[in-house]
Amino acid sequence: MAARLEIVSPEGLRVDGRRPAEVRRVLTRTGVLSQADGSAYIEQGNTKCLAAVYGPREPVKRAGVLHDRATINVEYNVSSFSSGERRAKLRRDRKLLEIGLMIKQTFETVVATTSFPRSEIDIYLQILQTDGGAVHTAINAATLALIDAGIPMTDYVCACSAGFVNDQAILDLNFLEESADVPTLTVALLPKSGKISMLGLESRLHIDKLEPVIALASDGCMQMKDTLDEAIRISTRNLAKTVLH
C-alpha cells in the first residue's frame, strides 16, 4: 500500500493543501453570453463550466410539446481538451446523456414549468476543464444561468461532492482524489427546505459511512448556496442601477 497516494496526510492536509471539510475556491460570473437568455460561468478549483439557458421559448421540435407545462432539455458536454489526455468525443456518449438526464430531472422539481405551457427551456452545459466534480459544477452553473435567464424557480439547486477515505469524510474532491479509488458521492440539494434532489454514487461505500458523507456534502451545498446567492445579488444590484434608472 506504500505506493498508493496519500489522500489525507498525517497532518490532516489533502494533496492540494485543503482540510478534509474544505471546499475549493469558487469563482462565478453571470450574463457572459449575449445571445443566450441566461448564462453563467463557474470555476470550482480547476474545474470550469460554462452554462447557457435558452427559453422559455417556442419548441424547436413539435414532438417535445407538453400542453400543461414547459419541457426542459439538458445537454451536458465535456470538451475534448478538458482533461489531461486529449480524446475525441464519441458522437453519442451514453455517460454524458445519462448525466444530462440526471441534471434535467433535478431541475424539473424546482423550475416552475407549469407557468409556461407549450414552451421549452434548453440548458447547455459545457465543461471546459475537468479537475474532479464536473457534475456538481455543472449543476451549480445551470442554477446560476437559470436565475440569470429570469426563469422562476422555487429554490436554488446547489450541488457538492464528498468522499470517504482513511476513516473520514472529505469534501469537494479533485481529480487526483476521485481517481484514487475514493468513493465519491454527489449531492444536489434545495437549501431552503434541505431536501436532497439528487444523489449519485459511482463506487461502493459502506452503509454506515453513508450518513456522515451525506452530511458533509450537504454542508458543502449550503456553502455553495451562500456563494451563488452572493453572486446573484451583486449582479442583480448592478443591473438594477442601469436598467431601471
Binding site: 427559453g55 436565475i147 429570469g150 442583480t236
Partner: peptide, 30 residues
C-alpha cells in the same frame, strides 16, 4: 409563490409593490 403563509420570491430581481400586490421584476428575462 406562497409557502406556509409566507410570500417567497421565485426570481432574482427587484421587489415591485403596488398597494397590496407584490411582484418581483426580473432584470433579464424573455
Amino acid at each position: 409563490y406562497t409557502e406556509d403563509e409566507t410570500l417567497v420570491a421565485s426570481l432574482a430581481g427587484v421587489v415591485d409593490r403596488v398597494n397590496k400586490l407584490i411582484s418581483i421584476k426580473p432584470l433579464r428575462t424573455r
